[in-house]
C-alpha cells in the first residue's frame, strides 16, 4: 500500500514537472523543473529498492548536470531572450508523433500478459553488490566509461577554450 502511494506520488511528480519543464516559457524555470523531475525519478528508484542508484541520480543528475545547465543558461542569457518565444512552430506534429509513440507503447503494454510479475522485495541494501559487480564482472565497461568521461572532460575544455584562442 505504501508502495502504491509512493509510486503514484512520484509518477505524478515526474510527469507534471516534465510537462512544466517543456512548456515553461523561461529556460531558467525549465531547468528547475528538470531538477524536480529527476528527483522524482530518484524516488522511483527508491520505490524499486535501488537506494544507491537513487543517490547517484540525485548527486550526478541534480547536483552536476542540472547545475551545469543552469551555469550555461546564465552564461548564454541575453535580455532579448526573456520575452522571445521559447517554442518553435513544430508543436502540432511533435504532439502527434509523441502521442503516437506513447499510444504504441501503451497498447503494447496492454496487449502483453505480465502474469504474476510483482516486485521481489530485496530486503538488504544492494550497494555492496553493486560495487562488487562494477569492479569484477563489469570492470571493463567501468574503465571504458571512465575513459569516456575523461575524454568528454578534455573535449569540453578544448571546445570552449579553443574558441577563445581563435579569437585572440
Amino acid at each position: 500500500m505504501v508502495e502504491t502511494i509512493l509510486f503514484y506520488g512520484f509518477a505524478a511528480l515526474i510527469l507534471i514537472s516534465a510537462l512544466l519543464m517543456i512548456i515553461a516559457p523561461n529556460i531558467y524555470h525549465s531547468a528547475l523543473f528538470l531538477a524536480l523531475c529527476l528527483f522524482g525519478v530518484a524516488g522511483i528508484y527508491v520505490v524499486l529498492n535501488s537506494y544507491f542508484l537513487a543517490g547517484i541520480q540525485v548527486l550526478v543528475y541534480i547536483g552536476a548536470v542540472v547545475v551545469l545547465a543552469l551555469f550555461v543558461i546564465n552564461l548564454t542569457r541575453r535580455i532579448l531572450d526573456v520575452d522571445s518565444d521559447q517554442h518553435n512552430e513544430q508543436l502540432l506534429p511533435a504532439v502527434i508523433i509523441s502521442g503516437l509513440t506513447a499510444f504504441l507503447i501503451i497498447s503494447a503494454v496492454l496487449k502483453t500478459n505480465w502474469g504474476t510479475m510483482i516486485a521481489h522485495r530485496v530486503a538488504q541494501d544492494n550497494t555492496a553488490l553493486t560495487g562488487r559487480l562494477l569492479l569484477n564482472e563489469f570492470v571493463l565497461p567501468f574503465e571504458i566509461v571512465s575513459v569516456l568521461l575523461l575524454a568528454a572532460l578534455i573535449g569540453a575544455i578544448s571546445i570552449v577554450a579553443g574558441d577563445k584562442g581563435a579569437q585572440k
Binding site: 513544430q90 506534429p93 511533435a94 504504441l104 503494447a108 503494454v109 496487449k111 502483453t112 500478459n113
Partner: peptide
C-alpha cells in the same frame, strides 16, 4: 522531426499490419 516521424510511422505500419507484433513477452 522527420527521423522520429519516420520511425514512428514505420512502427505504426508494422502494428497495423501485424497487431501481434505488439505483444511483448509472448502476449
Amino acid at each position: 522531426l522527420i527521423i522520429f516521424g519516420g520511425l514512428v510511422f514505420i512502427a505504426a505500419v508494422f502494428a497495423v499490419w501485424n497487431p501481434d507484433a505488439l505483444k511483448l513477452l509472448g502476449g
